[in-house]
Write a protein that binds this DNA or RNA. Sequence first.
DNA 1: TTGTAAGCGTTATCAG
DNA 2: CTGATAACGCTTACAA
Lengths: 335, 335
Amino acid sequence: MVVTIRDVAEAAGVSVATVSRIASGSDYPVGARTRERVEAVISALDYRPNQSATDLSRRDTHLVGVLAPDMANQYYAEVTRGIEDAAQTAGYQVLFSSTDRRKGRAESALEALLRRRVAALVILGGGDEVSLTRKQVTAYGTEVVLVGRPSDEFPTIQTDGESAGQEMASHFVGLGHERIAFIAGSRGSTATRLRLAGVRKTLRGAGLANPATARGGYTEEGGYRAARELLEQAAPGERPTAIIAANDRMAIGAMAAANDLGLRVPDDVALAGFDDTPISAYVRPALTTFSLHSAQLGAEAMQQILDREEGDTAIRHRTVEGEIVVRASCGARPA
Amino acid sequence: MVVTIRDVAEAAGVSVATVSRIASGSDYPVGARTRERVEAVISALDYRPNQSATDLSRRDTHLVGVLAPDMANQYYAEVTRGIEDAAQTAGYQVLFSSTDRRKGRAESALEALLRRRVAALVILGGGDEVSLTRKQVTAYGTEVVLVGRPSDEFPTIQTDGESAGQEMASHFVGLGHERIAFIAGSRGSTATRLRLAGVRKTLRGAGLANPATARGGYTEEGGYRAARELLEQAAPGERPTAIIAANDRMAIGAMAAANDLGLRVPDDVALAGFDDTPISAYVRPALTTFSLHSAQLGAEAMQQILDREEGDTAIRHRTVEGEIVVRASCGARPA
DNA sequence: TTGTAAGCGTTATCAG
DNA sequence: CTGATAACGCTTACAA
């Protein structure tokens, strides 16, 4: 049924070793005539090595497992894209699992990934649904890279969430805002925690009150609700004049909320998000945001893995620079 | 180093066969005492079966390959999510590759997937970068499901693109529009082709001119440019009063373009998209769109695969219903 | 340059 | 109920 290396060997009148050396692209010397003949047979029979067998024999899968919280979130989609892109060009394949932010899913997905003996594991997001210890993976030689979450057990790729928060807050403070609110993502999220910490720090430094906060679960809908809460519940004259949301999706939800409340953005409420999702440049007013170079984060993660496979064993913590992208929603430019 | 079935067998003083029967969750009878002892050893040693070996021996990988054009597109992200979700609960893992709409990438990704002997292959999108014949996969028993593209060789899951187009166009015609333009996605895309055909059909039926069209490559930026082209180049009095974009991302770009041209949506130009991306409900005016139930498409695809593994061999073409979601951007409701 | 054969880690058949 | 052992399809010493 399925063509195996043995079929090719027989058809070409050579040994399986020879076929293997040719089919696997090894640089082991093979006679020109033989090679030609074998190659002809390979393509005639449409032979394709069975990767499970190859992996088993080489005891190395060229598989990188990606564990992401939620593909509906464009940020993770982008990072995954970066990983997949780099992986593909490096000859790796991506085994993708989503945790859906649920502990059970995270555990079973991780287990499955480990059984596959993924050569590397990239864990996305700062959620607390996935926990992994060095011990669990060290036996398999699995390289682990954490994206967007600190760790001293594993190498990480991150953006400096705290300074991002500070930068964003400073921007608003510089614009004269004194009542700045914050829309958090989900409980236990590293990104939210760091960004909020940065915002707080800056406000404190500027002698301003702590930001009012509401939680929006990283979705447009959550951002919408959080913004309404922030905007409507405030005592008269206490309404925030600026809202920083922990991601763009929530910021866009907040923009809709402001709109629905008859508030103009940025005049009545200034807004900003994080991630620089493609859409943020195209909402109106265009959203001021903090660019994370998300695809690049993924690419860096993959690069980190490649470096380590090369034998660089140090636990590196790379932080890729992000930058504030000023657009109209913050009021720094004419809407 | 790595714990194998043999290590467990030795430590437990049983044969590998026994360990296998226990570790693989087979229902082969095993003595209670033995089972207990072996299970203890398994967890003490943190034994995890090597999936490559299992696959090789069982000659069945529980792997489903997903080939998508572009993860930056939320629609594909959603469908993938649907697939992954269903896959995970059915005990399958998702091997994810992106074609980036490039022929070369599609081919090598496909090759890699075939080498992995994926049990199933889900091909997303109607792009022409990936071509696959029954012959290539039949030997491996790979189940193939096409999502969003017609075929008589493989089962498909689709939405009826043409009636979606018709429905959308009728909606605008019913609203009194006579100059309706269309923003296409990429060349060779099935979704674009069908939707445009539907739009044309309806316009023709209503005695209206063919829609002016421009291409936007399915991105916000492309949609923005296409809309400017459509809106600015039209002779005075010829400007389209409605634009239908082949997806939401382009529609949102178009909305920005209208805005930047000082045109009000929907009063000066009415707008609509396709996909019902989460964000479309949160732009203002909220975007009228055609909901494809994208995650459900993915779930259906996975279901189709499961059915076929069960022995249902008919080539089924399931079409999942979509529906127009009327929001403010089309002018049918107050903005 | 080519071939032989011993793994790689499981599963499953066949005997006990 | 338990255990040997022959696959599964490939790679890689080691020999020739």
